[in-house]
Design a protein around this nucleic acid. Structure first.
Lengths: 204, 204
DNA sequence: CGGCCCTTTGACGGACGTCAAATAGCGTGG
DNA sequence: CCACGCTATTTGACGTCCGTCAAAGGGCCG
């Protein structure tokens, strides 16, 4: 049964259009993508960075979740699962149902934390948290070499994820580097002083 | 089968503790409540105002969603449904399942909008949107008399919902009133100029 | 009546945004 | 391989939105 097809998108290509009514739910296989929502005047909020293995949102299982934009950051390969196929699987297989509902509550917790970050945290905290968050997620996927990660994000991405401007992101990242918390060179980022970075992030 | 019990909480009382691991999911019957998440240092973000008929979150169906605080604004009556009873109902009744999954995607859209508001909108936009949003939800419940609604929220609530300070909320509400967009008196709020208020809110 | 919380107001400060210019990367094509 | 042009990053000066602090009412309940 062909329940999925594989696609490739180059960097910066749109994978899923905000107005698209699709019966497919996309899942990232390789590369980095970004899920966002935008206003007519151009203001944009990134809701999540998508890494290999991530689905856009479990919400996609039940409806098209219009308004969301999904875009490749690096070259990306992804699969498109038919919504109805997945729903059928869900009802046949109660183990799978449990895994999905777990993902669902995790996603809700993430959304709550995002609101808390955007509403109540300072610029430095938000940026430091994004870095630590990505490091943690990459580590789970065996995509960290020591404290170093591939870091394909433009500062514009970080700005849109944290509700800041690219200029201010540049200033904060500059401070972090001058304080030897992190080092960014080329397209990779190294955490030099994890303890201090966690302090800056007000991390648990 | 006793699947729910009714409780009453006076204003300001906690209905659901952030550390509580509960097998119950609360649903508001009357009054206003607030669902929030907080940092150790006291910063707080309100995630939703709960009106009669609202459950705290569909996420509660599948796990305890730790970290959330639910608190009465006015005197509140609510029911506590057993999680397992609800889950059982869900599997027996596929119509109910569809309704719940609809609620889930709605909730996801709300969460996305909250992030967009907090990350990318100005103070005035955020406050105007909260007012319009509440008016719309109250209208669906037949709880508006014309353009006037009961408005039990303290400015502290609005501040925590919009990521602002109570002082700044007071200033913006003052401007709105001097511009005759709204009028607040006692515990009720009237929308005087809906068109202008929608403009201020950058509303669709 | 008295205390407590809420709201309002004003002066001031700071975090972050805007604007602009200089520099550095990076992909493309000659 | 170099030249070119675009986009990203950095930096500084300056502006503004919103926060902080403080004081003065106002409303509500014991």
């Amino acid at each position: 049964m062909p329940i999925s097809t594989v696609h490739t998108a180059p960097a910066r290509r749109t994978i899923f259009h905000p107005k698209e009514w699709s019966e497919f739910v996309p899942v990232i296989c390789s590369g980095w993508a970004v899920s966002s929502i935008a206003l007519p005047d151009g203001r944009r909020q990134i809701l999540a960075f998508l890494l290999p293995g991530d689905a856009v949102s479990t919400g996609f299982l039940f409806g098209p979740l219009s308004g969301r934009h999904v875009e490749a950051v690096t070259e990306v390969t992804y699969r498109r699962f038919k919504r109805n196929d997945l729903r059928a699987l869900l009802f046949e297989n109660s183990d799978l149902f449990d895994r999905i509902s777990k993902t669902w509550t995790d996603e809700r917790v993430q959304a709550d934390q995002l609101a808390l970050d955007l509403g109540r945290r300072t610029a430095s905290e938000r940026i430091a948290r994004q870095i630590l968050n990505l490091a943690e997620r990459l580590a789970k996927r065996d995509m960290m070499s020591g404290q170093t990660m591939e870091f394909p994000l433009r500062q514009r991405h970080i700005a849109d994820a944290t509700g800041l401007t690219p200029v201010h992101v540049s200033k904060v990242l500059g401070e972090f580097q001058r304080a030897h918390l992190i080092e960014i060179s080329g397209r990779s980022l190294t955490i030099l002083n994890e303890a201090e970075l966690r302090m800056a992030a007000d991390w648990p």
